[in-house]
């Protein structure tokens, strides 16, 4: 039996779909007729939705008159694009040459360890999304970690722990 709240949920889902379609159309319009636009559109879409949801890809395919296969081929090729929603915090560990030489692997290990501990103590899995990135351009401060857009340099594993703690406090 359908409950009222299920109706409401369906309603808001439909609203979301409607809004999503509108946004996708707008983005596609904005780039319409401009040379070399697909990747730029995907960037715009990811900026908008945080990732590229399946429904959005579908809508985009329709809007641009290209196949889903094409869109998926592209999205899965480029590491920048995501098919799943990002966590609420993103931790990027630089694995560029300089950072690697200066112990980035250890930082990464410590991060993983700390996150496991945090998950054990009730932090939602996926709340912190850890990824390795290549040279973030601050080799002078190696090893470096970017936490939600803020760069932290010359880190040791202990410092990583502190940063995580502060984030979690917030």
């Amino acid at each position: 039996m359908k409950t009222k709240s299920a109706d409401a949920e369906l309603g808001s889902l439909l609203d979301w779909v409607e809004g999503m379609r509108k946004r996708v159309r707008e983005i596609a319009r904005e780039w319409e007729g401009r040379e070399g636009n697909l990747i730029m559109i995907l960037h715009a879409i990811q900026n908008e939705f945080g990732y590229v949801p399946r429904g959005v890809a579908n809508e985009l395919a329709r809007e641009m008159g290209i196949s889903m296969a094409r869109i998926y081929e592209v999205i899965t090729f480029y590491h920048y694009f995501r098919l799943t929603p990002p966590g609420s915090h993103t931790v990027q560990v630089c694995m560029g040459t300089a950072c690697y030489l200066k112990g980035a692997e250890k930082l990464h290990g410590e991060l993983e360890r700390q996150l496991k501990l945090m998950e054990a103590s009730g932090v939602r899995k996926g709340e912190f999304h850890v990824e390795n990135v290549r040279c973030i351009g601050c080799c002078g401060m190696a090893p470096a970690v970017v936490m939600d857009g803020d760069t932290h340099g010359r880190l040791c594993p202990d410092a990583v722990k502190d940063i995580l703690k502060r984030k979690r406090g917030k």
Binding site: G36, Y78, Y80, F81
Partner: peptide
């Protein structure tokens, strides 16, 4: 001239 972005592919 126009800008086009990469998307994480060396």
């Amino acid at each position: 001239a126009e800008v086009r972005l990469g998307a994480g592919a060396f």
